[in-house]
Design a protein around this nucleic acid. Sequence first.
DNA 1: AGGAACTTACTAACAACTAAGTTAATAATC
DNA 2: GATTATTAACTTAGTTGTTAGTAAGTTCCT
Lengths: 229, 229
Amino acid sequence: MTENSDVRKPLVGRARAAKAATPKGAERRREIVAAASELFARTGFRGTGMTEVAQRVGITEPGLLYHFGSKQGLLRAVVEHRDLASQAFARDIADVGGLQALREMPAFAHRNRDQPGLAKLFAVLLAENLDPGDPEHDFFVRRYREMRAVVAGMIREGQRSGEMRMDADPELKAIEILAALDGFASQWLLDPEMVDLVVCVEEYSRTLIRDLATDPEPVTAGTSEEIQG
Amino acid sequence: MTENSDVRKPLVGRARAAKAATPKGAERRREIVAAASELFARTGFRGTGMTEVAQRVGITEPGLLYHFGSKQGLLRAVVEHRDLASQAFARDIADVGGLQALREMPAFAHRNRDQPGLAKLFAVLLAENLDPGDPEHDFFVRRYREMRAVVAGMIREGQRSGEMRMDADPELKAIEILAALDGFASQWLLDPEMVDLVVCVEEYSRTLIRDLATDPEPVTAGTSEEIQG
DNA sequence: AGGAACTTACTAACAACTAAGTTAATAATC
DNA sequence: GATTATTAACTTAGTTGTTAGTAAGTTCCT
């Protein structure tokens, strides 16, 4: 019944410039990516016009297209650039490992709260790319698989070291943790007066530790104060 | 005018038809809402054209506008209609109350898995309305507040009846539960081959019961199914 | 001189929406 | 019970504005 022949653009565009060739050009690109990130976060990819982005950095629309070839090219640049921040977070988690990583979740929440643009950008772009065939669908699939792998690895390390119960499924727990963090973020973005991101993550962090730790934790009151062993 | 004069349409449009006046009209409205739900779910509100919706039901674009007055009018109709399904879920939860409600979460997940369109629609529309000023922002704020209240009430009842520990914060737990469910849904929609919605919710349901129940649960050998495939 | 980084001027497609007329069914009147 | 009036439910045709993207030329810097 009415099969979808919804084929996207054939992506023929000659992708005019993949990399900058000049310090000036590189700087412009950075400006453009920053502006586009803000606008995509506010009005989405589909809801944002190239003209708006161009005005924001004080050039014309074709001037913008010179750098990225097409709107999709710009999207890709935005997504890849902003992903670095998240990857940094992933490294942090991976480096720490085990229960200590869970204890540091509130710090991550603080960073997010201070940069609502990044959180919103990813929430909006994720929703716009849920469908296979959406321009950045594969990117988000890959990204979530990687992050789940990182979190699952962190849990597995906690199990190896004996800090965490063995009968927890690291894969499933990883999905749950990422799900909760995303969900907190969207409720907070939607209604910051009612939902405090940091409080939510702090409480959830405690819940996770209570759930996963083999030994009961000493009662750490309030915010994330490190307890040196 | 680099400043944002991004004022939305003043909503003056004479909202030509708020309700149907004829069985035939009512039926057409239903068709249109169904088609628009599908399309909004796939390509979002901003990414979907009135022409596409109109074609889908076999009428012209002005014919569509006759019924809903404007694109926003159509969006509102879609959102309000599809919300009824979610409200039904809320009633279920509220009626059951306490731990039993947590045990029935997988049933809710089953319903969602069989209707991916609804889940996707809400994920997409939520992300498109995170900003105050977005056309349905207030609707989503209201909706989440209501659902948090329902879930928090369910927990409070569990506490009153003695099934659940008193030192859990019902408001925070409600945020967490909705966050996790939304997050499961979006990971599942993005990558259904790696994330099984039902398995995730089942596991999470057990985690919640373990976390909140005062008495340890008898081991209900529910699903020993394999993890995702 | 030559290329990077633009601009102006344009196009073709499409967006939501309107105006005005048409059809068909119902409801009211004679 | 046929005719008329009224209305819902459309259609055709057009308006206005915006979209991403192009073509071709210009400025600037090395």
